[in-house]
Simulated scan of single mutants.
Amino acid sequence: MTQTYPHQWLSEHQHLGHSLCVVLDSENEGPARQAFLKNSRPDQYLSVYGQTEASDLNDAGPFVFGFDQPDDPNVSELLRRPESHWGWLASLPKGSLFRLVEHWRERMIVGTRPHQALYRFHDNRVLSRALEHLPLEAYPAYLGPAISVCYWQGTRWKNVDNPAPGKHPVPDSPLWLEVPFPRPQAMEARRLNAHRILLAEHLQAYAELAEQQAADTWLQSVLDLAETWNWQAPGQLEFLLTQRLRTLEPMPPYWHVRPGEDPDEHFDRVRSMADFWQGGAPL
């Protein structure tokens, strides 16, 4: 498919007097982010994670950049490679950039401490799946002040209009959190959330580990182990992360799965034995 469609969408919304912005998943888009920063006024961009509980991940978090022209060269560069999943486009009422950021700040952290997770709204695949599954009446609470969004849906561009743009409260049970994630996205979300837990709750131990070995490799090995044992609950993963931070030595024999033991039985036994041998001492 040619790249004329998103440019047409951008031109139409500019003609209607709407503001244009890109929600950039900047973790893997460092050069693109720098290009936007270099060419944006201070009032044209905001970091979503900045000044929030997730500020420790600010450098890898989403940024929202407003732009004036549909043919903005930085935007055109992104549109040439939609398969890189850099984020998505939105049109807003004039002067609503901060309201959009505020809207997603209210929705980006899900769960309660210490089992919180980050909702990756800035990933076009997450947005696409949510809008595919949500009923139309749930769009306003999800999209907030956005008048319309334009995003890459796997094989083609798609746009969705918000029937009631504006400020909406977060529902008690947001329907978008019930949308199932494909395995690759679920694994990436688990990696990012595990990284956030370590930075927020165990920074010193995590930094000491990084001095001895590649932290990313270590983290992936722990996540792989959690996957093998089917320890999927947030509390199970955090327990495994903190226990592996204690020592780089091989696991004691009691950690291994016993015949006929299901994941919950395995976890409860290991946690009890770890508490006994460690005297209940915190990390």
Rank of each mutant, 00 (worst) to 15 (best):
T155W: 05
F181D: 15
L245C: 09
V149R: 07
D25E: 12
D224G: 12
W9F: 14
S47F: 12
L127W: 07
L223W: 07
W231E: 05
W218Q: 06
P42I: 07
P252S: 06
A226I: 04
E265D: 15
E106F: 03
M108K: 02
N230F: 14
D275Y: 05
E27Y: 14
E27H: 12
P145T: 03
V64K: 01
L46N: 06
L78G: 01
L89W: 00
E12G: 09
I197H: 05
W88T: 04
H202E: 15
L241N: 01
D43G: 14
Y45D: 01
E265L: 09
H103V: 04
V64F: 01
P135K: 13
P163V: 00
Q69D: 12
F36W: 15
A164T: 06
M187Q: 09
Q51A: 13
L241A: 04
N230T: 10
R125K: 12
W88N: 00
N58F: 12
S128G: 14
F181V: 03
T242Q: 11
A189V: 06
Q212Y: 10
S76G: 10
G279C: 10
L192E: 10
A274H: 10
Y45P: 01
W9P: 00
A54V: 09
G260D: 05
W255T: 07
H168M: 14
W86R: 00
L237G: 01
W231L: 05
E188F: 06
L198C: 04
L248C: 01
A194W: 02
L198E: 00
F65W: 03
L192F: 03
D216A: 13
L78Y: 05
P6D: 11
L20Y: 06
H168P: 07
R156M: 09
D25R: 01
P174D: 00
E238H: 13
R191V: 06
P184L: 12
Q213F: 05
